[in-house]
Amino acid sequence: MSRTRTPAVDGWFTGGGDGFRLLGTRCSSCATVFFPREDVHCRNPCCVGGSLMETPLSRKGRIWSYTDSRYRPPSPYVSNPELPWEPYALIAVELAAERIVVLGQTTPKITVADLAVGMEVEVVPGVLHEDAETTWTTWHWRPTGVRA
């Protein structure tokens, strides 16, 4: 049986393959970018307030910092307690155009040994977890030049 692919969070990313992008919003008045998206009010206290338009974020950025999770995180993170825990790396990525730092998991098999502050990474589609009916999709960061 094939599973339905459903975003783990609605409206935070779009597209597939090289067209995959994180989605934020941009204030039409002050141009501030928000991720996670703000859809009602601009949070810049100096801004008179504009409308917030959906905007894709830069596909590539540089590592601000990184770490990993050697122990199984608690719920609501979903993992199979019957399988041995596989640590994953987390990267905080600085996007130059948006002047923002966005956290994300790395693609599977990337470990902290593969990473360095300042390294270029790109956003790619990823899978958070699967259950009987659904593949829950997310974003992953991957060092540029690494495939699959």
Binding site: T67, S69, P73
Partner: peptide, 17 residues
């Protein structure tokens, strides 16, 4: 927690690195 499994120590790890 839901999307990243980002526990408090992972933030401490980011700051330390």
């Amino acid at each position: 927690f839901r999307v990243l499994g980002a526990t408090n120590p992972t933030y401490f790890g980011l700051y330390a690195r």
